[in-house]
Write a protein that binds this DNA or RNA. Sequence first.
DNA 1: AGACACCCCTGAGAGC
DNA 2: TGCTCTCAGGGGTGTC
Length: 266
Amino acid sequence: VRRGLLPHVVGRHIRSLTVHQPQLRELIDVASLRRRLMGQHILGVRRRAKYLLFDLSADSTLMVHLGMSGRLGIVPTQRQRRLHDHLIIELDDGHALCLNDARRFGLVCCFARDDELAHRRLRHLGVEPLDPAAFTAAWLQARTRGCKKPIKNYLMDATHQVGVGNIYACEALFAARIHPVRAAGRLSAQRCARLVEAVVTVLREAIELGGTTLRDFANVDGAAGFFAPRLQVYGRTGQACLSCGGPIRRLVQAGRSTFFCPGCQH
DNA sequence: AGACACCCCTGAGAGC
DNA sequence: TGCTCTCAGGGGTGTC
């Protein structure tokens, strides 16, 4: 999403802000948001975990999280408002940045860039899996020692490493041939190495293909992502494993569905 | 420490 | 066709 946004927003000037529905995961402080956004230029877009961070002139950061169903789109300024369009940021080129989020689990806020590191949504976050200096097999092994929770739950815990959601946790564990229930602290050095490689590979490939469209995910142009046909286990309960032919199984861990191949993952 | 229940909210799909 | 039920890619809090 960040990559898709870049060519449309960098260098643009913010002309106006319209909030149709302030009640997302957190209530949007519309007055404060408008004060910080109006008249600013968008200098760049960064990402931390699953948060998009827009760098604005005047040293502000606009933070957007898409939750489960959020979409950010570049639309013509005059386009008719659609169901669940909650927030419109009008730019100076006849287009607008539009947040559409049916479930309203998304998040929008704006703060001084100096406050970013201490921000309550960001300060507890772990390492970026695509940072090769930080997310290494040695780091994972050291970090997991003594941890008894299942590796699937560990992978999805953003205080350790960020960005690994339910789909990619399942897919990475399959690629690394590791059983999702195995205790994190009992992964050998070899398994840690396989898992780190698998997480990075799965995430990189999914990003290149524009993400996983199950029902409603869409990128900036409104197009679907193309990773769904590459899924090996996610959502494939009862179907044949593409590696060994055995049936894919589903279980529930920490309230989330886990899909895995009992024949391939130990 | 970790499992679990529950919260935010709407919509898709299955089963009847 | 329409109803009810279950589940959903995220992330947080509170309790046991």
